[in-house]
Simulated assay, not measured.
Amino acid sequence: MKLRIRGNSVRLRLTRSEVEAFGKTGSVVEQTHFAAGGVMEYGLEAVADLAACTATFDGRAIRVLAPKPAVERWVNSDDVAVATSAAGTQDGHALTVLIEKDFACLTERPGEDDSDAYPHPHPDEC
C-alpha cells in the first residue's frame, strides 16, 4: 500500500493482493520503520455505519476509515477510486481522502516492482 500526503489530502493506493485481502478482512495495515526505532503505521478500515471517508492521526498512526458499502462496491468492480472531497476536521479544515487501486507505471522505474499492480487502463496515452 502506498501513502501519499499532500497539503490537506491523504491518498492510499492498494495493489491487487491488498485489495483482495481488504475485501476479505475489511482492513489492511502497513508500517514504515524509521531510524532510532521509530515506526509509523497507516491503514484502511471499512466501517459499516460511516457516511463518508475520513482519516485520523494519533501521532503514530494514520487510520483511513471508509463506508463499508462504498468500499465493497470498489473491491468488487472495475471502479478505480473511493473519494471524499470535503471531510471536516476538528479545526474546520477540509480533508480530502482518496482510496485507489494502484496501476502499473507507464515508465519503468528502477527498484519499483509493479508485478502486483493493476494493468494501466490507458497504456498508449503517454
Rank of each mutant, 00 (worst) to 15 (best):
K2N: 11
I5W: 00
I5D: 02
I5T: 12
G7F: 05
G7W: 09
V10R: 04
R11A: 09
R11M: 08
L12I: 10
R13H: 04
L14N: 03
L14W: 02
L14H: 03
T15P: 00
R16C: 01
S17D: 12
S17M: 04
E20T: 13
G23N: 07
T25F: 09
G26Y: 03
S27I: 04
S27H: 13
V28H: 15
Q31N: 10
T32K: 14
T32W: 13
H33I: 13
H33N: 10
F34P: 00
G37N: 05
V39F: 08
V39E: 09
M40S: 02
E41F: 06
G43R: 02
L44C: 08
A46H: 01
A46C: 02
V47E: 15
A48E: 15
A48H: 11
D49I: 01
L50I: 03
A51C: 02
A51E: 14
C53V: 07
T54R: 15
A55D: 01
A55V: 05
D58W: 14
D58T: 07
D58K: 14
G59N: 02
G59T: 02
G59M: 02
A61T: 11
A61F: 04
A61L: 07
R63H: 13
V64G: 07
L65P: 00
L65M: 13
A66I: 13
K68G: 00
P69K: 10
A70L: 13
E72D: 15
E72V: 14
N76M: 09
N76K: 15
N76L: 10
S77I: 14
S77W: 14
S77D: 11
D78K: 11
D79P: 00
V80K: 13
A81W: 06
V82Q: 04
A83D: 08
T84H: 12
T84D: 15
T84K: 02
A86V: 01
A87D: 04
A87T: 09
G88L: 11
T89D: 09
Q90D: 09
Q90N: 06
D91Q: 14
A94D: 14
A94K: 13
A94C: 01
L95T: 06
L95R: 06
V97I: 10
V97P: 00
E100N: 10
E100D: 12
K101P: 00
F103E: 12
A104Y: 01
A104Q: 11
A104E: 14
C105T: 11
C105H: 15
C105Y: 08
C105N: 15
L106M: 06
T107M: 11
E108T: 08
P110V: 12
D114H: 03
A117N: 12
Y118N: 01
P119T: 11
H120R: 06
H120T: 05
H120E: 05
P121I: 08
D124Q: 08
E125F: 09
